[in-house]
Design a protein around this nucleic acid. Structure first.
Ligand code: ZN
Ligand code: ZN
Ligand code: ZN
Ligand code: ZN
Lengths: 169, 169
DNA sequence: CGGCAAGTGCTATAATATATCATTCCACGA
DNA sequence: TCGTGGAATGATATATTATAGCACTTGCCG
């Protein structure tokens, strides 16, 4: 198995309106729910829809604000957090601890907590890579420390190519 | 340069009352302040003292609660956050985004944002490694994406050796 | 129908973090 | 000695993020 995500393709373009990202996410959601005997309820679906509108990360309350589109009424924060917990449990969305925000997974079902999150501080877009090397090294390190590794979070902040070009020229 | 932190030594023992950790941290604090033309004020020193009492991470408000020991009065949250911002800027303490908490650096001055944080979900102790391989891979990945890498955060949650032994037998 | 489990609505509240502006402190030069 | 300026802090208020608790609804299965 080689590098499973081509790094050149890992970072979504600034105005990428999803050549299939949403559709992939939704179909992954449905199959993951089926497999796990759970269901993609309206509330969960709404949160997933909102996050999958772009590759930006959103705060839970940003998501909440967008929940009233259509229906006149808005749920409480707990509804959003419950959906986020459910969706992140399936790997459909991820949380950025460095920013207390959430984003839709770019490769649902293709990684199991082994990806790296690349956050552009300028445009807010988040990309994902899945480095084969890192996937090997961390368990080795853990073994040498006799540490049982449960969850890994790798967040890289910087500036994406698009923003660098735009700002400089 | 080989692995700069022996992984076997990276995770502090559960009841390690610091064979020199505090002293190292304090002397690093003083020299880093000198170098950067800043000063280790009483407020900053107090926060550093509290965090360096153990290898556990603490919430900002946990730190705040311990600030009155001795003097009868307690500062506001802002004082704690200001100290934390200052100290983390010098690499003397680190923030755990996955838990919104803070801990004292185990190797102040020895790494520049290149370490991995190992968090024991059972005892709360946090260890640090500095993997040479990861320090190489991430910039390479960034280059291949034309992403300007500014800050990296790697947090690994699991269970330390001590806790595994204790629980199992 | 009755009982159960999963999910949600609703309200309150906890936990984390920052904004703003007045005040203190101290080094430094007049 | 005095005034001045910058860094740090105090104090208060408020913003932001997240969870607890409990009643209610819904759909399923016997
Ligand atoms: Zn993902
Ligand atoms: Zn960007
Ligand atoms: Zn450190
Ligand atoms: Zn432990």
């Amino acid at each position: 198995m080689v590098q499973s995500i081509d790094p050149g393709q890992a970072f979504p373009a600034r105005c990428d309106y999803h050549s299939g990202c949403r559709e992939r996410l939704l179909s992954a959601a449905e199959s993951l729910c089926r497999e796990s005997g759970t269901s993609l309820t309206a509330n969960r679906r709404a949160v997933l829809d909102i996050l999958s509108e772009s590759h930006h990360s959103l705060g839970a309350y940003d998501i909440l604000e967008r929940m009233d589109a259509g229906a006149g009424r808005r749920p409480g924060p707990a509804a959003v957090y419950r959906a986020l917990e459910f969706l992140s449990g399936l790997g459909l969305v991820h949380r950025l601890g460095s920013r207390n925000s959430w984003f839709a997974c770019s490769r649902p079902g293709e990684h199991r907590g082994r990806s790296q999150y690349w956050i552009c501080a300028n445009c807010g877009v988040v990309g994902e890579t899945e480095s084969e090397e890192i996937a090997q090294i961390l368990p080795e390190l853990a073994l040498s420390m006799a540490f049982r590794l449960d969850r890994v979070s790798i967040e890289i902040e910087g500036e994406c190519r698009g923003c660098q070009l735009q700002i400089k020229g």
